[in-house]
Design a protein around this nucleic acid. Sequence first.
DNA 1: AATAACAACAACCGCCGACGT
DNA 2: CACGTCGGCGGTTGTTGTTAT
Length: 340
Amino acid sequence: MGRAPCCDKANVKKGPWAPDEDAKLKAYIEKHGTGGNWIALPRKVGLKRCGKSCRLRWLNYLRPNLKHGGFTQEEDDIICSLYISIGSRWSIIAAQLPGRTDNDIKNYWNTRLKKKLLGRRKQSNAKGRIAVDSEATWRHDDPPRPSELSNANAAVERLHLHMQLQYLQNPLSYFNANPALWSKMHPLLQENTIQSLRFMPQQTEDLHIPCLEYDSRPPAATSCPRAFQQPISEEIGNLDSQVELGTYSDAIYDDSRSLTLGAINGISSCSVGSIPINYTSDMIMSNIDQLSDTRNTVAELENMANRRIGGIMSKEEQDLDYFESSNGSDECFNWWSKDI
DNA sequence: AATAACAACAACCGCCGACGT
DNA sequence: CACGTCGGCGGTTGTTGTTAT
């Protein structure tokens, strides 16, 4: 037997909170606390609300010392850096910003910050390029729909930001699209990616890749598998990883330093640094024009490759491929270990 | 002045791990 | 051990306010 139902769904009020409801809830919690049981709280307070709703209202709005709106530049920078490092873990990001709630930061990111940083992609797509988000024109026999790639796109988006930031620090290491790297990919994946490029003749002039040479950074994220073969979480801190449809990205982080890397169909990105990373949203904004063309080219490559690869390689296959086909060297691992 | 489009924000929904029964 | 709720989280939707036409 489980517990009793939390509330009578048919008999609870929904929608915006009235001032008197706020006052009741606030007064009760300030006097008695939550009692560690949100489900029982509305009955004690005398509210016809679900316990979850009360919890949300208290945490996001009524709780003392909350700040609303007016995000500072410093907060912007922290949000950007953390998002790039750990993704949409809003509760963790909120923990770094006193007085801010995860909901607040999530809204702020989705309505403002993200548009500031990525907002120009749509504009470029409108000029006859590949439609990244066109759900309406998707045919039944096409590869995965955009919605099916949403998880991958989230990682792609994060990687885009990361690449942009890396480029700002060192233009020659922005990313590496050297086809030589593709030998480390699954043969099928490699062939599909190359085919993808061949299908884009009309975009030749757009395919300006700023760096086709190795630079001083590790040759590719695929050369750093050792970090994942070993229990890094014991060495450095928390390990958080995700392997998503057609996309691979990863982040290792703790309080003092972070390590992020990603590889999308042969286009790799990696960096080592502390949290927050020393990038500022100002740096991004001041260079956004310069980055625009490059970013869209990368987006096209990734999107085309993702469409073709999606559904072909399973998560396990990708894992296996990365770990088996790469030859993570001590030199590479040492590089990741130093400079932190 | 009316209204459409967009932006901002509050709140809900559904998922998932933890845990009580 | 199985079942089912709780609490927390992130994604999404609905509502309200603002701006543009």
